[in-house]
């Protein structure tokens, strides 16, 4: 059997890895580091609302950390 490669395959097989895996850089030059996911807030909210991911609690901790940071960021800009 030969492997197939369609857009549907990509969506089914790769959504999770493109969003959560792939190489992760932990360095100051990068927008987000280690414990903070690199995806945007609304995007993560959209994902977190979806059952399979929240069942595993994948996003909960990240969410909190990210929200905290985001708030701090907003505060700083306001000052």
């Amino acid at each position: 059997m030969r492997p197939t490669k369609s857009e549907d395959d990509a969506l089914v097989d790769l959504v999770d890895v493109i969003l959560r895996k792939g190489a992760v850089i932990e360095a100051d030059v990068v927008i987000a580091v280690a414990d903070i996911p690199l995806v945007g807030l609304k995007l993560r909210a959209a994902l977190a609302g979806m059952t399979t991911m929240t069942e595993y609690g994948i996003f909960e901790e990240w969410d909190e950390a990210q929200r905290l940071r985001h708030r701090e960021g907003v505060d700083r800009r306001v000052e």
Binding site: M1, T4, K5, D9, V17, E26, A27, V33, A34, D35
Partner: peptide, 24 residues
């Protein structure tokens, strides 16, 4: 279901930083 070839997303390392830092 057998799909690919894909870029090796699952087999990529974490780069830099060494140990993953805990919560800030």
């Amino acid at each position: 279901r057998f799909t690919g070839p894909w870029p090796p997303y699952t087999f990529t390392p974490e780069l830099g930083g060494g140990d993953a830092p805990d919560e800030v």
